[in-house]
């Protein structure tokens, strides 16, 4: 293993800003894994740290394949992590909206450029990602439909689901999108948690990455078997909104299977404790996403279901 400084920026009153990477093996740039990009992505940092640890032990036992190299970058934004802020400390910009970056531009454009120069020519790219709305996800691989996406490869992670998403304009600055445009096969991996550590789901995600590395011949180690992934399109998910605001009381977990009419959550009056509304499954399904904050606004999505059976979504 080689510890490398991928990018460095000097500061007036803080230690230099550094993006640090860990390289295993030599030769073809086979896979790059990127962890937290926002200051609250602690689970993503943790997943990378455990992956580095696993790869170190595999390397020590000679399991990194000849002529292949794997790079892990646990954290792209230590400055924000160290002060508990989600985005860039001064101007609040999001590094994951600045790709492919610009070396003469604003600070976060320069950071994106410095990182992308190092990682844009890998064959495969993996990002441990989080979502802008607070909530828990079923572990899955998310891919943007760019014309370069590779669904068959995505299944090799062996996570329960592969989700295909149509990019919106706002996505054009993300690492995943730009990796694909520059012909790296890119995958975003989601786990239920972001701001706190969930060891069990972290282990699942690390297993899925090593499983993938085995299948592409980058490591020679046979780990646990995974799932046969279901491929779903984002617009086939059934969104359920709450009409009421208040205290949010979830009655199911992600990955749970529910039948039409089952209670998913309740919204309580924050002063008197009465049930303001019950959120029920509108079809048989698997809970793919659910809101996780203890408070909830009205008219906001609190749950997304993967429909099961004969259900045909009504869309207009």
């Amino acid at each position: 293993m080689e510890r490398i400084t991928v990018y460095e920026l000097e500061s007036m009153y803080r230690d230099s800003f550094r993006i640090t990477g860990f390289r295993f093996g030599e030769g073809e740039k086979t896979m790059c894994i990127v962890g937290s990009m926002r200051g609250n992505e602690v689970q993503q940092l943790y997943c990378c740290s455990q992956l580095v640890n696993r790869l170190k032990s595999l390397e020590a036992r000679g399991h990194i394949a000849e002529g292949r190299s794997i790079t892990v970058i646990p954290c792209v934004n230590p400055y924000s992590m160290n002060i508990g802020k989600r985005f860039w400390p001064t101007d609040n910009s999001d590094i994951n909206r600045m790709f492919p970056g610009y070396d003469l531009g604003e600070t976060t454009q320069r950071i994106a450029d410095g990182l992308f120069r190092e990682i844009s020519d890998y064959r495969y790219g993996v990002q441990f990602a989080s979502y802008h709305t607070p909530g828990r996800f079923t572990p899955h691989v998310r891919m943007m439909r760019t014309g370069f996406e590779s669904v068959e490869d995505a299944k090799s992670f062996g996570l329960p689901y592969v989700l295909i998403v149509d990019p919106v304009p706002f996505d054009s600055g993300t690492l995943n999108y730009n990796w694909q445009i520059w012909e790296t096969k890119a995958f975003s991996l989601y786990t239920p948690e972001t701001t706190r550590i969930d060891r069990i789901s972290a282990t699942r995600v690390i297993n899925s990455v090593t499983r993938f590395l085995t299948r592409i011949g980058a490591i020679t180690y046979h780990g646990r078997a995974g799932h046969q992934s279901d491929v779903i399109e984002e617009d086939h998910l059934i969104s359920i909104q709450t009409p009421e605001a208040g205290i949010f009381e979830p009655m199911t977990e992600v990955e749970a299977q529910v039948s039409e009419g089952d209670l998913i959550a309740r919204v309580l009056d924050p002063y008197e404790g009465d049930v303001r509304c019950e959120i029920r499954a509108v079809c048989d399904g698997v809970v793919f996403f659910r809101h996780s904050d203890p408070l909830v606004y009205a008219d906001t999505v609190v749950c997304r279901l993967i429909p099961l059976g004969e259900f045909k979504p009504l869309r207009g």
Partner: peptide
């Protein structure tokens, strides 16, 4: 600057979505 609680620039959410999260709605 953004929508408190969502860390989202409201001027990146148009034309919005009645079936989405609160800022999109």
């Amino acid at each position: 600057r953004g929508v408190p609680g969502f860390d989202l620039d409201m001027n990146r959410t148009f034309p919005g979505n009645l079936q989405g999260s609160m800022p999109e709605y």
